[in-house]
Design a protein around this nucleic acid. Structure first.
Length: 437
DNA sequence: TCTGGGGTCCTAGGACCC
DNA sequence: TCTGGGGTCCTAGGACCC
């Protein structure tokens, strides 16, 4: 991610933010139209919390992040349709949505799985709202995903516009905030915590000094806002004023950090089980690392108890640094095992573990110390290449390291997360292809 | 019984060096 | 008893996002 640069005020920018409505729920609906007009929620990993809610589910009072077990009455009473998350499906539909959007502008930033910023610079001779409505129509037609679109002279204002367009459902899911009069009207009624980049902590600080609406934030003293909210807050104020500080980032930069951590389906007590779980997490993280052709020089491993449970808590982590970076699953898994042996304590009910790769550099930058065996490193790379090729062709985990365990589907290990309500991978697995009778 | 995961950026403060 | 100051680098923690 490059540092945000200040654009010349001489070039008027126009940003459109396109955002998939209740994205995961909408993906489920694409392949199951009987879910239309029904309350639907999609759960986080391990079937824990509601992370996506259809409008009907929101209307029932289900909040973002509500734990399933605390809303089970609402779910039951209203026959809410509940799904485990199916990232293979969502990722695939996301890619379709992005390629559809790319037809509408030469400059686009894929911001998240369900959002993209489009540059509409130089489209000024068109009716931008009409153009946005056309984008919505085509995305809906070609992917089945409903969207909302906000337009503004800065990213922050485009975000504001998108939020209001979605909330009010006015103008057919489109709002153009390019003109000053509309900005005045919208910012006046928008709570400051609804501004992109203002979270709960910052909102509390702002309320404390009497800033409650987006408009008040926009008109506040710049230096005072910077003292309160650092340089980040200063940029937000400027963006609200229509001064673009955040540029479109069209190139997806390589990850600086790769994390793989998961809660266990059931409590885990033994070192052997932790090692098996972590070997699987290292495997995932290494796959991501090699996909960006990187090597990592620092790895952290952590294990912890259930933080929501009463009783003694335990958290421990260990870090290992490597002079010569590596992306070898075998090496990193062995290293993770050594860390686990050091941080493991007997007699504890573990609920979660994870690995964090950091200090990631391009593989071309690999530096060998005097004591490293260069031959071994190039041998590792060859083995990984073969493993990746086989798994790409035959499916994930066809070839894996022994430390990952050998589990039969009938007897899932305790550490394996729950996903009891997962829909088929309609678009990414031949066996799951939808059958039309 | 059951409460997610994966990222980024910014800042303050310590370590270290000259 | 007196006992500098400034610069850089690194890291942990905070805050935010989807």
């Amino acid at each position: 991610m490059s540092t945000p640069r200040v654009l010349s005020p001489a070039t008027p920018n126009v940003f459109a933010l396109v955002d998939g409505n209740s994205f995961y729920c909408s993906c489920e609906r694409v392949f199951n139209p009987s879910l239309n007009n029904q309350p639907v929620i999609v759960l986080s990993n391990n079937d824990g919390c509601a992370v996506s809610r259809s409008d009907e589910a929101k209307a029932l009072g289900i909040k973002m992040g509500d734990p399933l077990h605390l809303i089970k009455d609402i779910v039951k009473r209203n026959r809410v349709r509940v799904y485990s998350s199916n990232y293979a499906l969502y990722g695939d539909l996301s890619a379709r949505m992005m390629s559809t959007l790319a037809q509408f502008t030469p400059e686009m930033e894929v911001y998240s799985i369900d959002e993209a910023f489009l540059s509409l610079d130089g489209f000024g001779n068109r009716d931008l709202s009409e153009y946005a409505r056309e984008i919505r129509r085509v995305v809906r037609r070609d992917t089945g995903i409903p969207t909302a679109i906000g337009i503004g002279p800065t990213k922050v204002l485009a975000k504001v516009a998108n939020r209001v367009a979605k909330k009010n459902n006015r103008n057919d899911g489109v709002l153009n905030l390019c003109d000053r009069a509309t900005q005045e009207e919208v910012l006046h009624t928008l709570p400051v915590e609804d501004v992109w980049g203002i979270g709960a902590r910052s909102a509390a600080k702002l309320n404390h000094v009497g800033v409650r609406t987006a408009k008040q934030l926009r008109d506040a003293n710049l230096d005072e806002m910077q003292r309160l909210l650092t340089i980040v807050g200063r940029r937000i104020v400027l963006e609200l004023r229509g001064e673009s500080c955040l540029a479109l980032e069209m190139i997806q930069e390589d990850r600086k950090q790769i994390v793989c951590s998961k809660s266990f389906g059931r409590p885990v007590y033994t070192l052997a089980e932790l090692q098996e779980a972590v070997a699987n997490y290292v495997t995932r993280a290494c796959e991501k690392l090699r996909r960006q052709d990187g090597i990592c020089h620092t790895m952290s491993v952590f294990i912890q108890t259930n933080r929501f449970k009463d009783g003694p808590q335990y958290y421990n982590s260990g870090m290992i640094k490597m002079d010569a970076g590596t992306s070898s699953t075998i090496r990193l898994s062995a290293a993770a095992n050594r860390v686990l042996e050091q941080i493991f304590r007997e007699g504890i009910e573990y609920k979660k573990a994870g690995v964090i790769f950091s200090d990631i550099r391009p593989s071309a930058s690999v530096q060998f110390s005097l004591f490293d065996d260069q031959g071994q490193h190039s041998q590792d790379a060859k083995v990984m290449k073969v493993m990746d090729a086989i798994n790409a062709r035959m499916g994930r985990n066809t070839l894996k390291i022994g430390a990952c365990g050998n589990t039969s589907p009938s007897e899932a290990p305790a550490w394996e997360m729950q996903a009891k309500m997962r829909t088929p991978c309609y678009t990414t697995r031949w066996a799951d292809l939808l059958k039309v009778k």
